[in-house]
Computed example of a mutant assay.
Amino acid sequence: MKVINCIIVEDEQYAINILSDFISKVPFINLEQTFTNPIDALLYLKSNSIDLIFLDINMPELSGIDLIKLLPKNIEIVITSGYSEFAVAGFENNVLDYLLKPYSFDRFLQAAQKALDKLLLLDTHKPTPVNDHSDSFYLKTDHGKIVRINFNDIIYIEGLKNYCSVFTEHERHISLVSMKTLADNLPQQDFARTHKSYIIALKRIKSIDGNMVMFDKIKEKIPIGVTYRESFFAQLNNKMFK
């Protein structure tokens, strides 16, 4: 059985108690931690992997919407709020569901089932390496077709909301898979993250001009984001004659 590991970020203890009780009644959800301070939750997530966050919106120091923008994109979010006016902002940030307080156990269970369905779907689209020393992997595309992709054929990967596009010289493969999942399955010495939305194949780089990467065989240029610039050039320096 699929088990969803979750945390609660909520500044009111009574709301945490209610939600914790609901979670305890659902066999496929495991509550890892609760937080009354969103900053503490961010620090926890730096060294711990979870699938789902039950998140309040109206909190001191950092609002739930601001916290969402700082979270890894592969974490599902269910907002729990007493204010309906935040619903639009929540769904604009791709939250999975919005529980308006006070919510019943039945309504909570609907959100929990939605999370389970989403995560099971993502699991079916994860790339499967042939073996640890393979030169390729299998990827389930958005049309349900399974394709084998050679690492050497990849030029770059683009992440777009809930799916990724893998670009080779002649093809584009679209899959409902996260950037993190793809990054974890790529040979670390051959690929680099240059931007929150891009992973590139180092061996396909033709040139770098300022903050743009050019490739052989294709005309597309990929940006180098400020967040990834230092780590990207550090990785590139290992392959550079000076």
Rank of each mutant, 00 (worst) to 15 (best):
K2C: 05
N5C: 09
N5E: 14
I7A: 07
E10L: 01
Y14A: 15
L19A: 09
D21Y: 13
I23A: 05
S24I: 08
P27K: 12
P38C: 11
P38V: 11
D40P: 02
A41T: 06
L42K: 04
K46N: 12
N48E: 13
I53M: 04
I53H: 02
I57D: 02
N58T: 12
P60A: 09
P60H: 04
E61T: 11
E61G: 02
S63N: 06
G64E: 08
I65T: 02
K69T: 07
L70G: 04
L71I: 07
P72Y: 10
P72M: 12
K73D: 14
K73W: 06
I75F: 03
E76N: 13
I77N: 01
V78W: 11
T80L: 00
S81L: 00
S81K: 00
G82M: 09
G82L: 10
S84E: 14
S84I: 13
E85F: 13
V88T: 09
F91Y: 10
E92L: 01
E92R: 03
D97V: 09
L99P: 02
L100W: 04
K101D: 09
Y103S: 05
F105E: 09
D106L: 13
R107N: 04
R107W: 01
A111F: 01
K114Q: 06
D117I: 12
D117G: 04
L120P: 02
L122I: 08
T124Y: 07
H125C: 05
K126H: 05
T128W: 05
N131D: 14
D132C: 03
D132Q: 10
S134Y: 10
Y138F: 11
L139D: 02
L139F: 01
D142W: 06
H143W: 10
G144L: 00
V147Q: 08
I149G: 00
N150E: 15
N152I: 13
G159T: 14
L160G: 00
F167T: 13
T168A: 03
H170D: 14
E171S: 13
R172Y: 07
S175Y: 00
V177K: 02
S178E: 03
M179V: 07
K180C: 05
K180E: 14
T181N: 04
D184R: 05
L186H: 05
Q189V: 12
D190R: 10
D190W: 06
A192Q: 12
H195K: 11
K196W: 11
A201K: 13
L202P: 01
I208F: 06
D209M: 07
G210E: 06
N211F: 06
F215K: 03
K217T: 15
I218E: 12
K219F: 12
K221Q: 15
K221V: 14
P223F: 03
I224W: 04
V226F: 02
Y228M: 10
E230S: 11
S231T: 13
F232E: 04
F233R: 05
F233T: 05
F233M: 09
A234G: 11
Q235N: 15
